[in-house]
Design a protein around this nucleic acid. Structure first.
Lengths: 246, 246
DNA sequence: AAATCGATATCGTAG
DNA sequence: CTACGATGTCGATTT
């Protein structure tokens, strides 16, 4: 496709809120929060309905260059080629893309009212524990979730069968040394605020060797629990509730 | 475009290492590290040369669903539509995409040998400080960078004009409370290992109010320095070197 | 394979 | 706007 035709497609698409896909040979430059330069090669450029801009190489998950939604787009033909300037004010940053050859340029009116639901998040692990605290430890009673201490939130504050406070930190991924430090930090704030000693439990699907030895040293307990198991427990419970209603 | 024609384009493209772009109405399901469900809507599906899979909604930076490079792709026409199954073994996960309507489906042989260079990273800030330590504080001398303590790395270990050890932590973005805690943590490990007191400095372009007050309380000093300034300093130095050579 | 850390991280949420 | 934590974070590097 010729550059002027592509320019017309891009700008009329941008102005009417379409999603534009350009495949071609391009190079790019970014100046803003960082600074980068990309020399010529075959790329896929996507300008979405919300005027976010993605420049993809033919490999990998991440765009090599991009701009977030709501960017201001200017385009013109120069001696270099079809030059797109994508800029915004806060933070001040500019992505300049020069297209030298166009293999394809199309604009689509895309309407997406689909719903996206995700399960097996940290939130689901929390819900499963609230529903079945005995899973963590027999006799455990939940006192509060998301208790605010300073500017931070403690995942779960509970009390064990001996009446001692328990600070619980949940991670959906393998527990790290820093996660152990986080629960220690939360517990120390609770202890300072309430003037009571606490037990500390890190709940995660697995734990790194370093985190395990640090936990041992700092008297942080570890309880194995996975997001997948949490999802299954919640599904079962939901299924049961449906059955009870029905 | 009819579904069988799209199926043919997709599979022959996948088998010959092309990049495939499909625009159409689709829904998707993911099971693996998490679990998600996306109901029908207009989407852009990209299968790259390296068999990474991206499913984009018409808004936002991130793909709503994806698979990393090297995934195994199977496709067939079912009663539901054109069904793509993208799976891998480690970790075990499957992304199932059902295309019910195809607006466009094309395969491109994309060759990208371009170079990507980035500046104004945290690494550049470190290099600038190594080149001009006086910028941080007159008389500062760099002892080590990336010093390993346990399993972690300290950005810069230096000594001030009074001969006292200085632990420096660099951030390219606004400093947070956690960054202050990190430099404290590193310093305590150094103090334990070397048996000497240290000064602690957080270098960042700005600092949050909470981080500033925590830094004050914990005797962590803050020095303002930005990635952009680091890049300018390094560019100037490089220009000077070129001038000296030429 | 495991662990750590940086990133133009992005994104949502709360205040 | 700022601040903070979650993410199927990804990706690079080192052991």
């Amino acid at each position: 496709m010729e550059l002027p035709e592509a320019l017309e497609k891009i700008m009329s698409g941008v102005n009417s809120g379409k999603t534009i896909i350009v495949v071609g040979k391009m190079h790019a430059q970014y100046v803003g929060r960082s600074t980068s330069r990309l020399t010529e090669g075959d790329r896929v450029l996507i300008i979405k309905n919300d005027r976010s801009v993605l420049l993809h190489r033919p490999t990998g998950y991440e765009p090599v260059n991009w701009q977030p939604p709501g960017v201001v787009i200017n385009a013109q033909i120069t001696v270099e080629g079809l030059e797109l300037e994508c800029s915004r004010k806060s933070p001040p940053e500019v992505l300049r893309i020069v297209i030298t050859e166009v293999y394809s340029a199309e604009a689509y009116r895309l309407i997406d009212k689909g719903e996206f639901t995700i399960h097996a998040r940290e939130e689901d692990m929390k819900l499963a524990i609230i529903n079945s605290p005995d899973m963590i430890e027999p006799g455990l009673k939940i006192l509060e979730t998301e208790r605010r201490v300073g500017d931070e939130y403690i995942d779960i504050l509970a009390v064990d069968s001996d009446g001692q406070l328990v600070v619980i930190e949940i991670k959906r991924r393998r527990g790290t040394r820093q996660d152990v430090e986080q629960v220690i930090h939360y517990a120390s704030m609770v202890e300072k605020e309430l003037g009571k000693k606490t037990r500390k439990i890190l709940v995660a699907p697995s734990i790194s060797r370093e985190a395990a030895s640090l936990a041992m040293a700092l008297k942080v307990e570890y309880k194995c629990f996975s997001p997948r198991l949490a999802y299954e427990i919640l599904s079962k419970k939901k299924g049961l509730e449906r059955f009870m209603k029905g």
